[in-house]
């Protein structure tokens, strides 16, 4: 459905994507992992069409993405960003309604006549009671739920997530990930999620892509990608990988380095000697 060919991008002389090619097939949940600066967010912006590739091409059903009008594209692809929405004076319902923008004519009428979908989204995300509160009265987690309801009313068939659970407590993290998973399974969405939390990536994604220095290090199931050597290469981190007792997916535990005392403070400042 989304095909990426020979994609390259750089900021100044710092290359963030280098000849990246991949084919994302429909109704699959992809997770993109990798260290800070590996080009994950840039890739997502290229996939969303808000950034033009410096070379290479992104194809949506074999049509170059950048040739599709913005509004038409917004009916196919929705993006949930990290950090959610700014604290504004708009009410929750008003913001969720903004998700219908791609379906509205110049005068604001809904061309698809699906007014009920706003209430449905509020109900599904548990926001019905908060619907008339303004955004500035909500917590960060509640605002991210509003953002989720907003992409839901956009009715996309492709959903891009850019670290959607950053800054949220584990309750909200779980809520957001499970909502997306169920939505994905119910409506056969293509989901591509940039994730920092490798354990969540292993639990919720069908397929993982590990990006390192702008190119693909590994791709496949969580079992194939989340191996100790891969994690060490990606993050320069020492980890112990175990299998989730009930879900049969790999989960990471940090493994403290034995010679830790000398790793950063070797030299004159010997600690606790």
């Amino acid at each position: 459905m989304i095909k990426v060919e020979q994609l390259s991008y750089h900021y100044g002389d710092r290359s963030v994507l280098d000849q990246f090619s991949y084919r994302f097939s429909p109704s699959n949940f992809y997770g993109i992992i990798g260290p800070n600066g590996a080009g994950k967010s840039t890739l997502l912006q290229l996939l969303a069409g808000v950034r033009a590739p410096l070379s290479g091409i992104v194809l949506l059903d074999d049509v170059p993405l950048r040739q599709i009008p913005r509004k038409q594209l917004a009916r196919r692809i929705a993006v949930l960003q990290q950090g959610g929405l700014p604290a504004l004076g708009f009410t929750v319902r008003e913001v969720v309604e903004m998700g219908r923008f791609p379906y509205q004519g110049w005068l604001g009428g809904d061309l698809d006549n699906r007014k009920g979908i706003v209430e449905e989204a509020l109900y599904l995300t548990g926001l019905t009671k908060l619907a008339d509160r303004s955004l500035e009265q909500l917590s960060g987690g509640e605002r991210q739920r509003v953002a989720l309801a907003k992409v839901f009313v956009q009715q996309p068939d492709i959903l891009l997530l850019d670290e959607p659970t950053t800054y949220l407590d584990i309750g909200y993290q779980q809520m957001i990930m499970e909502f997306v998973q169920q939505w994905q399974q119910n409506q056969q969405l293509l989901v591509i999620a940039v994730l920092h939390d490798l354990n969540a990536a292993a639990l919720y994604c069908d397929e993982l892509l590990a990006l390192s220095n702008g190119s693909l290090l590994a791709a496949g199931s969580a079992v194939e990608v989340l191996t100790s050597p891969n994690v060490a290469e990606l993050y320069d981190a020492n980890t112990l990988i175990i299998t989730h007792p009930e879900q049969a997916v790999p989960q990471l535990l940090l493994q403290p380095n034995k010679d830790n005392t000398n790793r950063y403070f070797a030299g004159d400042h010997k600690q606790n000697t």
Binding site: V50, R70, K71, Q81, F101
Partner: peptide, 13 residues
């Protein structure tokens, strides 16, 4: 008001 990128994702040029 939601931010320029958010507006672009919603189909605003």
């Amino acid at each position: 008001a939601l931010g320029e990128r958010e507006a672009a994702y919603l189909g605003v040029q």
